[in-house]
Design a protein around this nucleic acid. Structure first.
Length: 421
RNA sequence: GGGAUCGUAGCUCAGUCGGUUAGAGCGCCUGACUGUGGCUCAGGAGGUCGUGGGUUCGAGUCCCAUCGGUCCCCCCA
């Protein structure tokens, strides 16, 4: 069929047959966040483009070629391409730091990147995010990672099907030296690197480490460990000790540098070994101790994670994890004949008001058709109303599983059904 | 941005070397049952074969273009 209007490339409708699955993982996430003491924050979809240019980085792929930017009057706006920067902006704008102590915030948000879509990658995607402000101690890193792995576990995903990859990328004190080290290594091997990496060697040398094309060559690049300053080194060692104590398995990945400029020290991601195709990262995150200050706030250590909702759903389905059935009706009110329809509607309303999910035919259909719909709705009980019931002030209740029928007075009907569900 | 692949009813698909009114299953609607579902049977609705152009006496089938889906590179959630 030729359609005049269709959803934009990479933008998906979530249809009723899938939406209950979204509700399920969202509910799990909210529960999980509550367990850990996070509170929800919701920020607008639009921000000034500059917010992301400053934080994510002008040279990052996200900003330089994937961000949706448009102009209206003098202002340049961007659809949020990630979740952290807006939360930091709100954190500062409303002075949340003045409450003192650690602030733990979570969110569920769409985000937008103009990429070519493929499995697990869309132009509008959604993420579960969690951010911790004001916690410099590695305890925070450890709790965050344990929280993330615990979330996947709570969805039934065995942790041994996932791989937590962990790295540290140092801080402004020690990273420059490391960047130079990698840059020098790159220059020494310049002609062997791919064109892409040759180009970014000057602007963002660390990115050559996670280039798949240059995987072989950069295997010999210097690891960061001997460049780390004392503070970064002890932070990372302490974190690793805590993870072991918590029995959180991880793999050290020297190449994990990530594409957002604001990260410091800890970086991590969780990849699925099967079920996701080539976009196999379920989540990514890390520490961003300099970001709050970068945006004009007080020096505030912080860290966070973004979990892909679509990818989570994909892997749950691919690995046949337990998922809820779509919700069904409990009752269906059937009217035999036009005279019964208004009464049937009233009774449906009563049932709904007492918390019984109830369906009712809105087309004035035949009894037969209504019964068919009653069956399809999944309702346990069909409430039948015809002339004789109307005269006697009763309803015939049919149990659609056992096929049993009985007469119940209209006054007692809602209570009768409620007690039997 | 580069590449691969696919586009026939709501869905899953068939359609033989181009040949006449384009089919099936599922789903949907109606009836068999003047007030009763799931099974069965009968009937019905629904497609300008993604779109545009070309070749041909004739195109769903061949050619070109274009749009869209899917997947991959890139990048990342």
């Amino acid at each position: 069929m030729e359609l005049k209007y269709r959803a934009l490339e990479g933008m998906n409708d979530v249809l009723p047959e899938q939406s209950h699955l979204w509700q399920y993982v969202e509910a799990r996430w909210r529960d999980h966040m509550h367990q850990y003491g996070y509170r929800e924050i919701r920020t607008p979809i639009l921000e000034t483009a500059e917010l992301f240019e400053r934080t994510v980085g002008e040279t990052s792929d996200i900003v330089s070629k994937e961000m949706y930017v448009f102009q209206r009057g003098e202002e340049r706006y961007a659809l949020k391409p990630e979740g952290t920067a807006p939360v930091v902006r709100a954190y500062l704008e409303h002075g949340l730091y003045s409450a003192g102590g650690v602030q733990k915030l979570y969110y569920i948000t769409p985000f937008f990147r103009g990429e070519r879509p493929q499995k697990g990658r869309y132009r509008q995607a959604h993420q579960f995010g969690a951010e911790i402000f004001g916690a410099a101690h590695p305890l925070a890193d450890a709790e965050l990672l344990a929280m993330v792995m615990g979330f996947f576990q709570s969805l039934g995903l065995p942790n041994d099907l996932l791989e937590l990859r962990l790295n540290t990328i140092g801080c402004p004190m020690c990273r420059p030296a490391y960047r130079e080290g990698v840059r020098n290594f790159g220059r020494e091997n310049l002609e062997r690197l791919c064109k892409n990496c040759q180009a970014r060697l000057e602007r963002n040398p660390l990115r050559i480490l996670d280039c798949k094309e240059c995987f072989q060559i950069t295997a010999d690049a210097p690891p960061i460990d001997r460049y780390l300053c004392e503070e970064c080194r002890t932070h990372f060692e302490s974190l690793q000790g805590l993870l072991k104590a918590l029995d959180v398995a991880y793999v050290r990945d020297h190449r994990l540098v990530r594409g957002l400029d604001y990260y410091t020290r800890t970086t991590f991601e969780v990849v699925a070994e099967q079920g996701l195709g080539s976009q196999n990262a379920l989540c990514g995150g890390g520490r961003y101790d300099g970001l709050v200050e970068e945006l004009g706030g007080p020096p505030t250590p912080a860290l966070g994670v973004g979990i892909g909702v679509e990818r989570t759903l994909l892997i749950l389905q691919a690995l046949n994890m337990p998922l809820p059935e779509p919700p069904t009706m409990d009752a269906y009110v059937v009217a035999f004949g036009d005279a019964a329809r208004p009464v049937a509607l009233q009774i449906a309303q009563q049932l709904r008001a007492t918390g019984v999910p109830t369906e009712f035919d809105l087309e004035g259909r035949s009894p037969k058709a209504q019964m068919r719909l009653a069956n399809r709705s999944g309702a346990r009980y069909a409430v039948l109303l015809g002339e004789s019931e109307l005269q006697q002030g009763t309803a015939t209740v049919k149990d659609l599983q056992t096929h049993e029928q009985m007469t119940v007075s209209q006054v007692e009907l809602t209570e009768w059904i409620r007690t039997r569900l």
